[in-house]
Design a protein around this nucleic acid. Structure first.
Lengths: 150, 150
DNA sequence: TACGTTTATATCGTGTGCGATATTAATGAC
DNA sequence: GTCATTAATATCGCACACGATATAAACGTA
């Protein structure tokens, strides 16, 4: 049985939703690591590629919106993906401020590895498919609520 | 209705549990930021303090175990907390390899701020208490399963 | 006691992440 | 058309986060 707290008591770190997310995110990163190291990718690089596999040739800004990240985070990741030959960046013709990100053959080829990695990770979570889909929905809804605040 | 995928299709980034955790963790960090900036703390520093409020005077290693982090991450955080005067580090007497971390009056005083911050964040999640507690349990269970793998 | 091994913590290099700022291009008011 | 403003992306400084390595203390075995 869980320990009871009075209203004024601070919660234990393990009882905080922030720590649950914080530590689960690190654990997920760690679970992906062996799969991604084999491909020469980091976790954020892989997530960036996943967004591009679904929607290629979008602008840096659109990619930031999709991943909920700042340009100061995405730009260096794209530079490393470009250095590895997985993406190309092209200035827009009509609007030269925009930069469009395109997958190369190499970057597109990595997509074929994703389903097996995903299957491994899903297995590692120990959560059955149906429950996992619900969990993704609940966590995403919470994230969206947090995003709306500021 | 959600888009259907064949078994061989890759999932959209939004459908991946890894992205749900990744983005929710960033959103949580962002939600805490104004509260913590007012105290001169960062998010990892606050989480570290939360662990110490519950169990003070433990070793660096025990703190790493509790937070599921590496010593290479915790040591610099402790150095910054020490520089701010919130904690003190003392070498063990019997075993001089160990370093014990103790809260100062300043570090202990911050605990009083925690309940109100927690209440704000819980409100920001938009998730009712009971459901949030279940969510914490589900996410923690998944994290523990992921940790057991490697 | 000497010395190889293990243990606890710290340091270093690389890659995020973000806020603040810079840079360059497009836009708008006149 | 000029110039202030806005918009899209990049750069910089600071703080994680971790793997690899270093350091120093404790331990084990001969």
């Amino acid at each position: 049985m869980a320990k009871k707290h009075a209203e004024t008591d601070a919660l234990t770190v393990e009882e905080l939703i922030c720590f649950a997310l914080y530590s689960a995110n690190h654990a997920m990163n760690k679970a992906y690591k062996p799969h991604l190291t084999a491909l020469g990718l980091t976790y954020p690089q892989y997530i960036t590629l996943t967004a591009l596999w679904d929607r290629d040739g979008i602008t840096v800004g659109a990619l930031c919106d999709r991943l909920l990240m700042e340009t100061s985070t995405i730009t260096p990741i794209l530079k490393r993906l470009e250095a590895q030959g997985h993406v190309e960046r092209k200035r827009g013709k009509e609007d030269e401020r925009q930069v469009f990100v395109h997958l190369t053959a190499s970057g597109r080829a990595l997509e074929a590895k994703a389903p097996e990695i995903t299957a491994c990770i899903i297995d590692d979570t120990g959560v059955p498919q149906a429950k996992l889909e619900k969990l993704v929905q609940d966590i995403s809804a919470m994230r969206d609520s947090l995003e709306r605040v500021d």
